[in-house]
Amino acid sequence: MEKKTAESQVIVVTSGKGGVGKTTTVANVSASLSKMGYKTVVIDLDIGLKKLDLILGLENRVIYDIVQVIEGECTLRQALVKDKRFPGLYLLPAAQTRNKDEITPEQVKKICEHLKSDFDFILIDCPAGIEQGFRNAVGAADKAIVVTNPEISAVRDADRIIGLLESAQFKEIKLIINRYQTNMVKKGDMLSIDDLLEHLCIDLLGVVPEDSNVIISTNKGEPIVLNGHSKAAISFNNIALRLTGKEVEFPSFEEESLWNKLKSLGRNIFPGK
């Protein structure tokens, strides 16, 4: 499979707080991109606490890792794990028994430069926190995605991360709100999309609703976009589409009433009416 675009995009996915769904986002958005025919590589930079291989279901196929590439124990090509379900999706695994301060931003940047000639999208899964691991991840990227949950501690950490990205001269910083629950927002028990945009003041890239299918697909090691038409899968696909430059309207995130469901069912059965 050949690279599709002239200019590669190097995107870091970060959040500050752990557990908001960074790795799930990276896995699904990259799988979706490769489904659309874009050659995509994901780099797991959570050295010492790797997860991406597991979420993608590639844990048994990992042979080498990024630290071994940097230390010259193997070539970059040898370390890349090809995902057989998605043509054009590759994983550069993290090392599990090493530390984040064993590599530098310059080394990560050099790897990304090499990958650019082969890939349309290079997605970097950034570890939680704002220390060395964060610096390694952001140094090589020219765009950033901040993942957050509609929950105050996640928003506070997201705000700190956005501040750091702005000082690092990032021009394009976009927000993904994960685990959104429309019914809770309606009851006045959860921060809304508008609340988060008001606090964080960056552009919205996508909203992923709370969806138990995410846990099920993670259990199986299958990205939810593989064959799912679940709410989360649709959202991840929309995010991938927006990254390729397509305008995708944001759904209203209103809980559908029975009447509306019947109406749309009717429209599907009798198109043109």
Binding site: I152, V155, R156, D189, H199
Partner: peptide, 24 residues
């Protein structure tokens, strides 16, 4: 109960507004 829960989102917003202003 509903009045109370209606304020949890509002409380979150108020607390965030203050803490983010100071954090920044």
């Amino acid at each position: 109960l509903t009045n109370d829960s209606a304020s949890s989102r509002r409380r979150a917003n108020e607390r965030l507004r203050l803490v983010l202003t100071h954090d920044r």
